[in-house]
Structures are given as structure tokens and as C-alpha cells.
Amino acid sequence: MHARIVRGAVRSAALAAAVTGTLTWAPTASAQPSEPTPSASTSPIETPAPDAGSIAITKKDTAGDVLSGAAFLLLDATGQETGRGKTDAQGKLTFPDLPPGIYRLKETFSGSPLHEVVADQDVIVTPGATARLTITDPFKAAKVLLQAKDDKTGKLLPGSTVNIGTGSDTLLTLTTGSQGTATGELPMTSRKTEFWVKQVKAPQGYDLYKPAKTFAAGPGAPVTVTVTNAKTSTTPKPDPSEKPTDKPTPKPDDPSEKPTDKTTDIPSDGAQPTPADSATPDAESSLLPEATATEETTPKTPTGSLAHTGADATPWILGSGGLFVVAGSAALIAARRRRTDSSTDDGPSES
């Protein structure tokens, strides 16, 4: 009996010992894996950094001149500022030590009141390389004011269309509005540019201004261009209220026709008429013998000749009258001589 008790006590003690040993080891065994080994803590793994790149800027204008003082801002892909700066006296600016990637370059100031800034642009930076950019700032446009005027009164005229350009290129077309003016902008390529202006449509009621005018303009500077027009000359139209007259307009006389003082009837045989008063030049012609009075006859017109007009009969009438006067005078003289001769032949009468 005693032996059984002893054996049970030994078994209980062994079981208790076994349990106690397990509880003591377990925490030690579980803690071993959680602690880093000395070698791992003293030599960490390092990731190699990629090669850096850069951006180099050269700043110019359209005339080829470098621009200093131009300000730029550089943003990364997330929109965070990576760098900023201004171009030097040679127009250059560099952004160094940039991780590879895509960047946004913004120009915030051109460095000159005559130039405009360029639009934003993306720049790709590659490992170990420099992205070189030449940025050209345009000149500011010239401000143009167009006026169309009456050349006499100076009144502003609407509806005038002009082309403005340089060389063989037309850069701007303007048409004056109701106020007789128009505005526009001319692109500039230098600090001073010569332009021409030519009118292609005149205001209503005015003649086209054909000559081409020239003017000079500068970047951002206002300039006024004036085109003058003369009124179109028109022939006055007849008044519709006036009624036409029924009287015909007399025609002018033909200068080739000569007026005649007398109308002479020409016989059908062509003989010229004898004036009635030329037959008896004076009172003594009645004493002439009948033979003497009829000795002279009127000359006849040659056969085959045409009848004369009244203008040609006048010299014949005058000539015929003259012949009759001469013939009458001769007959009178002859009659007187006969009387004298007869009285001489008879002699003195006997007493």
C-alpha cells in the first residue's frame, strides 16, 4: 500500500516537473525569431539613384536679338515647383540636376515691354542628358486706327474697306463702321516696320482712292491711318415736274446757202429777162428810130446750158442794164449829129 502511494507521488512529481519545464521554455523559443540578427541590422540594402538631367534655355526675339531678364518657372509632373530663374546677358538660363521625367516650362515675363511671352510647353528630361531649348518671343502687335474722311469737309465716312500689308503680303483688312472708323492689330517682325494701305472699296457716293499710302509702326504702339475720298461727280437729272414743250427747235441755217434779194423767174428757153426800167434810160430815148431801139437784143443762153439760179441772174441783169444804157446814149448822140448835119446842108434860107 505504501509502495503504491510512493509510486503515485513520484508520477505526480514527474508530471509537475514536466509541466513546469514547458512553461519556462516556451517564451524563450517564441522570442528568438522576432529579434533581428546583428548582421542584418548593420548592413542595410541600398537602391542606386538614376542619373540626373538638365534643361538649358536660350532666349531670342523674331529679329534674332537675345533677350536678357526673361523669367521662367519650372514645374514637375505633379505641378510642384522645381525651379525658377531669369536669362542672363547672353539670354541663357539652365535648370540642373533634374530627375528624369516630364516638366512644364512657363514664361512669366519676356524681359522687354516690346515682346510677348510664349505659351507654356512640356519638356522631357532624360538621364544624363541636357534638353536644349531656343525660345523666340514675338513682338507685340501694333494698334491700328483707320479713319475714312470726306476730302472737303473732313466728315467721317462709313463703308470704306482697305487692305494693309507689307511687301506682297496682306496682313489686315478693315472696314469703317457707322462712326467712320475701324481698329485692328498688325503683327510686327521688327522694332520698326513699313506698311502700305490700299482702299479696295469706297464709301457710297464717293470715288475710290486709288493711290497706295505708306506708314511706319512699332511694337505695341498705336498708329492712325486716314484715307480721304472725293464725292462722285454726277450729271444733273431733268426735273420730272417740267413738261416738254411742243414747239420744235429751229435748225441753224446752212452757211453754204447764200440768201437772194430777189426772186427771178427764168424763162424755159434760158433767156434772161430784161428789166422794164432799163429800156428807156431817159426822156430823149423816145426820139430814137425804131430800128435803133431794136438793134440790141438780149443775149441768149447757149444751147445745152442749165438754167441759172437767182443768185447767178443778178450779174446778168446788171450787165444787161449797162448795155442798154450805153446803147441809148450812143443813139442819142447819133440823133443829135443827124439834126446838126441836116441843118448845115440846107444852108441859110433866102429872103
Rank of each mutant, 00 (worst) to 15 (best):
A291F: 07
W196T: 12
A276Y: 10
F215N: 01
K251A: 13
E242C: 05
H308Y: 12
P252A: 11
E284S: 12
D246H: 10
A307C: 14
T226E: 06
T228R: 13
S190Q: 07
A271K: 12
G218V: 04
S256L: 08
D239E: 02
P222N: 01
K201G: 07
A221S: 09
D312Y: 09
G220E: 00
I266P: 03
S278Y: 05
A276P: 08
S241M: 08
D254S: 05
T189I: 07
P203T: 04
F215Q: 01
K210M: 07
L186H: 03
P302M: 03
K210Y: 07
T260M: 09
K231T: 03
S286N: 14
E185A: 13
T228C: 01
A212W: 03
T214W: 07
K258Y: 05
P250W: 00
K243G: 06
K251S: 10
R191A: 11
S233V: 10
A291Q: 11
Y209I: 04
W196H: 07
A283G: 07
K192T: 14
F195S: 06
P203K: 00
P240S: 05
T264Y: 15
T260V: 15
P252N: 07
Q199E: 13
G218A: 12
D265F: 14
P211H: 02
A311T: 12
S285G: 03
S285W: 08
P281K: 11
P219C: 00
A217Q: 01
S286H: 13
V197P: 00
E296H: 12
T297R: 10
P236F: 00
P289R: 05
A293G: 13
T264R: 05
P267W: 05
T228V: 06
T193V: 10
H308K: 14
T309F: 07
A291C: 07
D261Y: 12
S305H: 09
P238W: 00
G218C: 01
P275T: 12
V225Q: 04
A307K: 15
P275D: 09
S256I: 01
S190K: 04
T280D: 15
D254V: 04
E295L: 14
H308P: 13
L208K: 06
K192W: 03
A283P: 05
V225T: 03
L287A: 15
G184P: 04
P222Y: 02
P289S: 08
E257W: 09
V200R: 03
D254Y: 02
K198R: 13
P244M: 10
T245G: 12
S241L: 09
E242Y: 08
W196V: 02
P267A: 11
K300V: 11
T234Y: 06
G205I: 00
E242N: 13
P244N: 10
A216G: 08
A230Y: 00
D207A: 09
D207E: 14
P250H: 00
T235I: 11
E242F: 14
P240T: 02
P238I: 00
L306T: 15
T193A: 08
K237N: 04
T280L: 12
D265T: 15
G184D: 05
P252I: 01
P273R: 04
S233Y: 03
P267N: 09
T235D: 13
P252R: 08
P248K: 06
G304R: 02
E242M: 14
P211F: 04
K210G: 06
D312V: 12
G304C: 01
T264K: 06
D253E: 12
D265H: 15
E257T: 14
T274S: 09
Y209V: 12
P238Y: 04
P302A: 08
